[in-house]
């Protein structure tokens, strides 16, 4: 029962990643794509955690933590770039 529900949950996350990927390719401006990348990255972090449970190896969670960390910096830098171009320093 638990295994079936875990597989269902992984499929749901993969489906939502496909939806966001469409917005990522299509989206008209850069902030749209950063928003889509936001959803994709955090969704993939959850998928990594679920697979760490399914495969039964408890130390694989480190990578999802690292992914969340790096995405924060990337978003901050893109925001800084967009603001700086508008201000024109």
């Amino acid at each position: 029962m638990i295994d079936l529900l875990l597989n269902v949950a992984i499929s749901m996350f993969v489906l939502s990643i496909v939806f966001s990927l469409y917005r990522m390719i299509r989206g008209p401006t850069v902030p749209d794509r950063m928003l889509a990348l936001d959803v994709i990255s955090y969704g993939l972090a959850v998928v990594m955690g679920l697979i760490a449970i399914v495969s039964g190896s408890p130390y694989l969670i480190v990578i999802s933590f690292s992914l969340a960390l790096w995405f924060f910096i990337g978003a901050l830098y893109v925001a800084r770039y967009l603001e700086g171009e508008e201000i024109g320093e």
């Binding site: 928003l35 924060f72 978003a75 901050l76 603001e83 508008e86």
Partner: peptide, 15 residues
């Protein structure tokens, strides 16, 4: 996540 969303949307409002 709210902070990065705030930063990007502020930049988008400036744009």
């Amino acid at each position: 996540a709210p902070v990065s969303s705030h930063a990007i949307s502020r930049a988008a409002a400036r744009m």
